[in-house]
């Protein structure tokens, strides 16, 4: 699989650092003119910009208003906010957030139980209880390297394996979690299900990681069609 990935010349995952220049996003339709940049609201990131001197570039550009779900608080994490947005249905942000908070609580409960039962000090020290860390690890473990796209050649559609960007990959991983959650048994609550699923995924197990591995298998099986990308 790794060799195959190399063949398709996919770069290593780009570390999400802050940009040297502010991100000017071009929206198809936006209240803001196109030269407005996305705000930088985390204190640490701003400090880094001041240190490196790149802040001079930022001083010349107007910035959009900060979103309603973003704060500079240490308890706010952009990936968690993104995950809440993926869980969102019919604009009920409050409900989505509550469900995710319950999920985190359940993760903590499960992990604390294990932690309190564990006697080996090494294992104990390496046990992760922080639900945000588990979420990040779970998403990282379920990120696919390729996806299949339908390419029309000679009247029929072939499923061609194609590389994807880091952003798209993260999107797929998070969406699979939510999709599996929506397919779950009605008797289990979403929070319970998600908690167990996230913990399993952080240990490279569970439905979502299996989904990713299935996708990789299919890509491997369809490697003969890879050249259809360029025909």
């Amino acid at each position: 699989m790794a060799l195959f990935a190399k063949y398709l010349r996919i770069g290593s995952t780009v570390k999400h650092g802050f940009q040297a220049f502010p991100q000017l996003t071009t929206a198809k339709y936006s209240v803001y003119p196109p030269h407005f940049a996305e705000p930088v609201y985390k204190k640490q990131e701003l400090d880094k910009l001041y240190e490196s001197g790149e802040i001079e570039n930022y001083k010349l550009i107007p910035f959009k208003a900060a979103k309603s779900n973003e704060t500079c608080s240490i308890f706010h994490d952009p990936m968690v906010a993104k995950f809440i947005n993926y869980m969102l249905l019919k604009g009920q942000k409050k409900l989505a957030r509550e469900v995710l908070e319950k999920t985190f609580e359940k993760i903590k409960k499960l992990q604390l139980e294990k932690y309190n039962r564990e006697t080996d000090p090494e294992k104990k020290a390496s046990m992760i209880i922080d639900p945000v860390v588990i979420l990040k690890k779970a998403v990282a473990n379920s990120k696919p390297l390729l996806k299949l796209t339908a390419v029309k050649r000679g009247g029929s559609f072939y499923q061609v394996p194609v590389p994807i960007t880091d952003k798209e990959s993260t999107f797929y991983a998070m969406r699979w979690f939510v999709q599996c959650g929506r397919e779950k048994d009605k008797s289990i609550s979403f929070a319970d299900f998600m908690a167990t699923e996230l913990i399993k995924a952080s240990n490279n197990d569970g439905k979502v990681v299996n989904k990713k591995l299935d996708l990789h298998k299919q890509c491997e099986a369809n490697r003969a069609y890879a050249h259809y990308r360029w025909s």
Binding site: V133, K137, A140
Partner: peptide, 16 residues
């Protein structure tokens, strides 16, 4: 693999 280790590093860094 490296990306995974980096994230694990995050976890162990939290422990550290």
């Amino acid at each position: 693999m490296r990306a995974y280790r980096r994230l694990c590093g995050y976890a162990t860094a939290a422990v550290k």
